[in-house]
Design a protein around this nucleic acid. Structure first.
Length: 282
DNA sequence: AGCACCACCTGTGGGC
DNA sequence: TGCCCACAGGTGGTGC
């Protein structure tokens, strides 16, 4: 589910809602959702802590407390809901409840149980336990020069696989990757080494534009994604290719679906050509 | 290094 | 109508 724009939407909503609040004792309906530390230490360490800041790196939501850092990753179907009216009724998928001492609460719900939370002591532990293999945030920690430099070390890889690799840069997921590659007219199976300078610049611009639009529209809801207030996103109506197999691209060609890097991949076969003329000859 | 495949889970949509 | 399988927004591991 949630990619960078969805997590950023939740982050922006939570800032005014929970900043300064103090956690009461959490309810661990499904303790296995806690990746670190063990559930007893987790509960003891969280209780009484104050929310100082809410950040994000890639798809990780990072809540800085006065004596630790709470991290949430929603994976495919996770939701993080804020309410002042008690737990959502008959939610079969409620995994963790995080009440505050004023009666409001955060609820972590997750149908497929892939989502995880961590509670670490400091930035060092954050890096070691959670973000060890996570690259720079592709929205907040990237510029064109850095992007070009990072590409230079991954010459052989297919673009779709590269953009999905959170170690290269963090935040892109399956939907926004397909949209970016369509936007700049590059085929998802193209390899980094075949890109011209202008294509690299177009790709970088497309990434910024698509992520910005996703955030402006409150994210994409296909099925499960909800923001912190339980409302669906809006960007699905703006998607050019993702989920639109058989529909006409603006060029007239039907959108195709294939598999790249093990993921369902939507593209326009006319706007995104797989091979350049020079490659075909060599 | 890069990629294919499997695992983790539950639900659902499309094909037959 | 009903059943079954493939697939779903993410990541981590294995093995070639």
């Amino acid at each position: 589910m949630p990619e960078l724009p969805e997590v950023e939407t939740i982050r922006r909503e939570l800032v005014p809602l929970i900043s300064g609040k103090i956690f009461a004792s959490p309810l661990l309906h499904m303790p296995s959702a806690i990746e670190y530390p063990d559930s007893e230490q987790f509960s003891a360490a969280l209780t009484g802590q104050k929310v100082l800041n809410i950040g994000r790196k890639g798809k990780y939501l990072i809540i800085t407390l006065d004596h630790g850092i709470l991290i949430v990753h929603l994976r495919m179907t996770g939701n993080l809901l804020y309410t002042e009216e008690g737990p959502p009724e008959k939610d079969r998928y409620l995994r963790l409840s995080f009440p505050f001492n004023d009666g409001s609460a955060l609820y972590f719900s997750d149908m497929r149980r892939f989502g995880r939370v961590w509670l670490v002591a400091d930035d060092h532990e954050l890096q070691e336990k959670v973000l060890k293999r996570v690259g720079p945030d592709i929205f907040d920690e990237m510029d064109l020069e850095k992007f070009i430099a990072l590409l230079g070390r991954r010459e052989r890889v297919m673009l779709k696989a590269l953009l999905l690799n959170q170690g290269f840069a963090a935040g892109m997921g399956n939907i926004y990757t397909d949209e970016c590659l369509f936007r700049c007219g590059i085929h998802p199976r193209r390899r980094v080494s075949t890109l011209s300078r202008s294509e690299v610049e177009a790709l970088y611009k497309a990434i910024r534009a698509v992520l910005n639009e996703g955030i402006e529209h409150g994210g994409t809801t296909f099925r499960d994604y909800r923001n912190a207030r339980g409302t669906a996103g809006d960007y699905q109506s703006k998607l050019a290719v993702y989920g639109r197999k058989g529909e006409r691209c603006r060029c007239g060609s039907p959108i195709e679906k294939t598999t790249v890097a093990g993921r369902g991949t939507y593209f326009c076969p006319l706007c995104q050509v797989e091979w350049t003329a020079t490659e075909k000859e060599t």
